[in-house]
Design a protein around this nucleic acid. Structure first.
Lengths: 255, 255
DNA sequence: TAGTGGTCTAGACCACGCG
DNA sequence: GCGTGGTCTAGACCACTAT
């Protein structure tokens, strides 16, 4: 294969931008423009290395970025091929509903309605996979409001430790993992969240100022320590008319 | 730094398992066991390379896997440190509601209620960012049922091309990207989905066999081609009492 | 057997953080 | 200035695919 290329193809070895990144962008552009179409094969790693007079390892680094982006796939012994965009995934992603509100630049405020120590009832014992009756739990009820409108209501439980007192300052915006790290000897390691839709209860309707039976998001969260022991549990209700989740898929361009 | 280690630490250079992967697992285990705690630094890349008599590039490959897993982070000039598990993300992920049903091993079936060619009204023209009145669209209404219970109802639109006839066989389980690829000259490249909660309409209640006003998931999807031109649109309604989304976060162990 | 991607090496130089 | 991680090289051998 030989080249009479007149487009002096843009790898600047003396640039501060890493070579692998320049090459990644170059190949990405060829794929997005359609110079390389789904199913077609990229030049071999050796071809690319020789073409641009760079090391094959550097070529591999660039290609591995394309693989990570889902734009190509490699097959040992065969070659590297342009992928077909996968559009059948749904990945709803957000950093926390309250951060979402923050991002929109609204005045938001978390209000602590109640904080107390409670005994274990059967439901709690089941949720925390605990047997004895001696355990006590910290219990919180909070409301999130933005622009004087109440948006969500949350109850949280975590295991109570006498030795770790609650500081007033920490009650301002208590996230569940934060509470656990501060008031128990446990280290939060993983969490499970389940999202459902529901009609809100009478109590929730009153707190959020919406009609009874109004549709709401409901997120139940369980926090685990490194032994997969549940060390925190929360249930949050979000107004259905104020929240939505957005998902982008395929070769969506971010930059 | 010197070593009197008696635990002959398990890097087998002649194994079929790549060295970088062995090292990745070794370090991952040390972190999960708590030998290395959040905030602590890993040995330097050179230390690890010398300790196990392997190349520094191989060490870097192992560490980059840890970085990708969110378990460590590297800081140029300082070192590599064990991360604190981030538990404030919510990533709801599924491969498609119908695949979800499939996974549960249920008998599921997609039924085509209606398929026709429609003219562009104002709403459609807005959704497809189109101006003239000459455009026509393919319109589909489908229902998904499992174990003889109707679970979801979906309407789909895509731009109509005379030259690409609809094959009967393709109507059995028509996914929106599939329809677009088959019946238009467009290549689906990216999609945007918005998830909301709602109370179902009278029509939806009848179709799904649930009470009017019952809470439902509502997913609106727009498919784009490489020019970010909308080439498909759908709206799906899912029974709130039959669907939920689950999210795992932190150092959740998969294997 | 030839060609592909996958792993690995033993160096090198650089940018950055810190004392 | 020194130690750290970040990039890059010019080879090497291997596993896999195709012919």
């Amino acid at each position: 294969m030989f080249w009479v290329s007149q487009e002096e193809t843009v790898i600047d070895k003396n640039s501060v931008i890493p070579i692998y990144y320049q090459l990644f962008k170059l190949l990405e552009g060829q794929i997005r423009r359609g110079d390389l179409k789904p199913g077609e094969s990229l030049p071999t790693e050796n071809d690319i290395a020789m073409r641009y007079e760079i090391s094959r390892m550097t070529v591999r680094r660039a290609i591995s970025e394309l693989v990570a982006a889902g734009m190509v796939y490699a097959q040992q012994g065969k070659g590297t091929f342009v992928a077909t965009p996968k559009l059948d995934n749904i990945v709803f992603e957000l950093n926390d509903f309250s951060q979402e509100v923050k991002k929109r630049g609204l005045n938001y405020k978390t209000t602590l309605l109640e904080a107390k120590i409670v005994r274990a009832d059967e439901t709690l014992k089941a949720r925390f996979e605990i047997q004895g009756d001696d355990k006590r739990f910290l219990f919180f009820r909070t409301v999130l409001a933005a622009e004087n409108e109440r948006l969500s209501y949350e109850v949280k439980y975590t295991i109570y430790s006498k030795s770790k007192p609650i500081l007033e300052s920490e009650l301002k915006d208590p996230s569940l993992p934060g509470l656990i790290a501060a008031h128990t000897e446990y280290v939060p390691m993983s969490s499970k969240k389940v999202l459902q839709v529901a009609s809100c209860t009478q109590e929730e309707a009153l707190i959020l100022g919406i009609p009874p039976q109004a549709p709401v998001f409901l997120i139940e969260q369980t926090i685990y320590n490194s032994d997969l022991k549940p060390v925190g549990w929360s249930k949050a209700v979000y107004r259905g008319d104020r929240y939505k989740l957005t998902s982008y898929d395929g070769w969506y361009k971010k930059d």
